Simulated scan of single mutants.
Amino acid sequence: MRLLPHLTKLTAPARRHHHITDNGPGPNATGHICPRVHLALYDGTERDYLLDGPSTCPCPRDPHARYEPRVHLAYLLAQQGHDAHWLARFADLPLPAAERITEAAASATRG
């Protein structure tokens, strides 16, 4: 999927600050907290996944969150109004994960 890195660069904001969907540890030395969500994908292990692309984070190698292009894509599409069932099919994600991503996108647009 060569489109995702290009799509990330086109759609990602230049800089992100504290975000209400963040469930991770406190801010790093720069005071930045990358938005993330706790999900279990197909392997069944729950992990923190970044919602934005790693290029928007000043500390992209954060050991507490992983970058999964399908999670990022689903988050962007959820912010545009797509529902969890559609996202699960389109991004090949488990429905509970797509529902959590949709909730995170909804709270991000309210905040």
Rank of each mutant, 00 (worst) to 15 (best):
K9C: 06
C34L: 04
A88S: 11
C59T: 12
G31I: 14
R100C: 05
A29W: 13
M1Y: 07
Q79L: 14
T8Q: 07
L76M: 12
L95Q: 09
Q79W: 06
T30N: 13
A12P: 03
H82T: 03
I101V: 08
L3D: 06
A91L: 04
N28E: 15
R66M: 10
T21K: 01
R2V: 07
T102M: 05
Y75A: 01
A88Y: 04
T11D: 02
D83K: 15
P27M: 12
L76I: 09
P63T: 11
P69F: 07
L41E: 05
I20H: 09
P60M: 07
H82P: 02
L73S: 08
P25S: 15
D92I: 08
P27V: 11
A91K: 05
T102Q: 11
A12K: 10
H32E: 14
N23M: 12
R100P: 01
R47A: 01
R15D: 12
G44Q: 03
F90Y: 09
L39Q: 08
D22L: 00
P27T: 11
V71P: 00
T8C: 00
P63G: 10
L77S: 03
T109D: 06
K9Q: 11
L93F: 08
P58W: 09
Y42T: 01
G26T: 14
L7Q: 05
L41T: 01
G53W: 00
Q80D: 12
R66E: 14
T8E: 14
D83W: 03
G81N: 10
P5W: 10
P96I: 06
P60V: 08
N28L: 06
I33C: 14
H32W: 13
L95T: 09
T109R: 15
P96C: 04
D48H: 12
R61L: 09
T56Y: 04
P94N: 07
H17G: 13
T56F: 02
P27S: 11
A97N: 09
A106Q: 15
N23W: 10
P96Y: 04
